[in-house]
Design a protein around this nucleic acid. Structure first.
Lengths: 207, 207
DNA sequence: GCATCAATCGCCCAAAAGAGGTATTTCCAA
DNA sequence: TTGGAAATACCTCTTTTGGGCGATTGATGC
């Protein structure tokens, strides 16, 4: 069987990209035949390439590495993504993991550390700090919310199974108004009824 | 301000319980005034006690530590739980974290490691191995499912916003039958309409 | 063999929801 | 200051839901 781990790199800095590529390609058990300087070219190619793991720079020009990862991961769930960052910024690491990354690496990581990390991800792990771990455990992916406060309030009540009248009573509104809000919720979430609204809202972690 | 970390212990082995208690209570910054030999007594008391962190043995006689944690955590989300295990069994650790635990400790852990671990959890971290981390990232809590396959199938369609007729068409049934299934879903989930059904189903990870 | 349950189909009827409008006020930002 | 959300309120109309009934079939289990 082929134990070699096949990598691709997405990194705009030529020097870093080539250096990483050389380190990896020069190590037994690793190969790195593909390297991209930006998200667009990566998006166009990586889906069709025989790669196990993609090293993805977070700070790419244009589309951010997180966005590129989200897209690629959703289309190629079998590929693992390791994010590259200059400094360990909790928030972007967290976002990366939620976007589908399996790990992250600081750019100044030593070559042996780098290879260890890659191996660990390849073996099905997700090395992460305990702070990040907690955030992953607690919440899960928070997507930007198109709904107003009022709409959120009403949406939650829909999830409790309340009808127009009960919601209206609870928040001292006319049922007509509640109805209007709900209609607006539907249009913002692009759904056509309560069940679908709740489904979508939860899947996007609105509630 | 009071920087002392207040702990409680749930552990059936007298020796271990007392040893842990003494180690913790003897360390500056830590106090452990409460110790329980089983889940039942812990369930009865811990909700009313001023504790920050509970050390919970997984292998308790009677109710498992995981179950006890699930229950206590849902009623006292402000308390953190650290599971104690004899050996690092991926699966039960994973289940523990899903039940609401924030960390786990091997019983043979050294005292200084123990205190470090507790401190880390207290500071909002969740120390975990990379294997566990990946499992947490990927899936999330699977609860036992009271619904039949047919009901699940229909429930998912409800989430897509389909109505009786459309569902019936899709799965080649009479709309009456679909209605009956949905009624049964309601009764099993203890809900009264679609929105609430979807909400509850997702929250319990049925869909 | 009997109980139970999942799955299937049906009817009636009241309540609720959803799809169209229209319209006023408030408040914030450009 | 003007334009645009957001929040508020109302109307009409059709469609959909959900509750309350009953009933048959087939599989599974004790």
């Amino acid at each position: 069987m082929d134990q070699t781990i096949h990598l691709a790199i997405v990194e705009d800095d030529n020097e870093i990209r080539q250096a990483l590529c050389m380190i990896i390609d020069g190590s037994p058990g690793f190969t790195c035949k593909y390297a991209f300087p930006d998200g667009e070219s990566a998006l166009a190619s990586i889906g069709n390439l025989p790669v196990d793991i993609v090293l993805m720079d977070i700070d790419l020009p244009g589309k951010s590495g997180i966005e590129v990862t989200r897209k690629l991961k959703s289309e190629n769930p079998e590929i693992d993504f390791i994010m590259l960052t200059v400094q360990s910024d909790d928030d972007s690491i967290f976002k990366s993991l939620c976007a589908g990354a399996s790990g992250y690496l600081l750019k100044e990581t030593s070559p042996s550390n780098l290879l260890d990390h890659i191996r660990e991800v390849y073996m099905g792990g997700s090395p992460m700090s305990s702070k990040i771990a907690r955030r992953i455990i607690n919440s899960f992916r928070v997507i930007q919310n198109p709904l107003s406060n009022r709409e959120m309030e009403i949406l939650e009540m829909l999830g409790q199974g309340l009808n127009y009248k009960d919601i209206a009573k609870d928040i001292f509104l006319s049922p007509h108004t509640v109805k209007t809000h709900i209609k607006n919720i539907y249009s913002k979430l692009h759904v056509k009824n309560r069940a679908e609204a709740i489904y979508k809202a939860i899947k996007q972690n609105l509630i």
